[in-house]
Write a protein that binds this DNA or RNA. Structure first.
Length: 274
DNA sequence: ACGCCCACCTGGAGGC
DNA sequence: TGCCTCCAGGTGGGCG
């Protein structure tokens, strides 16, 4: 589910609602996720939520007393849900897939993830640190020169390069497709073939798309909801993603769907001609 | 060393 | 209604 804009929207909502909230209870309901869920959450009882930060698709959550931050990754289907009460529970008293639940004076925060590709680890967890250390530049900090140098040695397609988190942190399948359309670059071109002017255009396109997506609350296709339950609306503005055979918004050609490195790529063959 | 395939899971959609 | 197949906003281990 969540790429950079969704994680950013979730982070802002959590910061607004949870900062300073006193934790009454933090419990792990299930630990057999892709990575074992952080241990020792019960020590957070009596502590308070303090800071919220994002790096790539990782969400960092800091506390007043506990030195280490907790780090969420939402995988494909992860959500963070804030409810005022426990009304969200079913007859048996639980929502299935609420793998971690924080209870504060006012709220219940649940880490919900049916597919269990997500993770919740302490920031000093070796596997988490390795992943975060590998991350490339935040889109806001991208420099044309360094990006071009990075692409120059790649044999993969530009689409695959944009999904490589060690090059740019935070882009996923939706926003990679949308950025390539906005920059009028064919997704099958090799990363190394992207020229100076195109790199500059691509960086501007990435920033513009991400900024608009955040402003729209992210993209809600099936899973993503903001913590308080609101949908995102950027999906209504998709130029190509999920629009196979629909007319291009710019030139009316049919949008095509191909598969690159196992992922669907949507593009306009005319606007993004090779 | 890099690029690609695949597994890791669940659930929704669509076909029959 | 049910059953089957395909598909999905990500990541990393393993293999060529």
């Amino acid at each position: 589910m969540p790429e950079l804009p969704e994680v950013e929207v979730i982070k802002r909502s959590m910061a607004k609602t949870l900062t300073g909230q006193r934790i009454i209870k933090a419990e792990r309901r299930r630990k057999d996720m892709r990575y074992p869920l952080a241990e020792g959450l019960e020590k957070l009882a009596g502590d308070r939520f303090s800071t919220f930060a994002r790096r790539g698709k990782y969400l960092f959550c800091g506390f007043r007393k506990q030195k280490r931050r907790l780090v969420f990754h939402l995988g494909m289907s992860g959500r963070l849900r804030i409810t005022a009460t426990d009304l969200s529970r079913n007859r048996r008293g639980e929502l299935p897939h609420d793998h971690v639940v924080f209870t504060t004076d006012k709220y219940r925060l649940a880490f919900f993830d049916p597919r269990r590709f997500g993770s919740l680890r302490w920031e000093d967890d070796p596997s988490l640190r390795a992943s975060v250390n590998r991350l490339g530049a935040e889109p806001s900090a991208l420099r044309a020169k360094t990006l071009r140098a990075r692409f120059a040695t790649k044999k993969a397609s530009i689409k695959a390069a944009l999904l490589d988190q060690s090059v740019i942190a935070g882009l996923g399948n939706i926003y990679a497709c949308e950025a390539l359309f906005a920059a009028a670059i064919n997704p099958q071109r090799s990363a190394a073939s992207i020229g100076e002017g195109e790199i500059a255009r691509l960086i501007r396109a990435i920033r513009r798309i991400l900024r608009r997506a955040v402003a729209d609350g992210g993209s809600t296709i099936k899973d993503h909801l903001q913590p308080m339950g609101e949908a995102g609306y950027f999906q209504t503005r998709f130029a190509v993603y999920g629009r196979k055979y629909l007319p291009c918004r710019r030139c009316k050609s049919r949008i095509m769907r191909i598969v690159q490195t196992g992922r669907a790529t949507f593009y306009c063959p005319k606007c993004q001609s090779p």
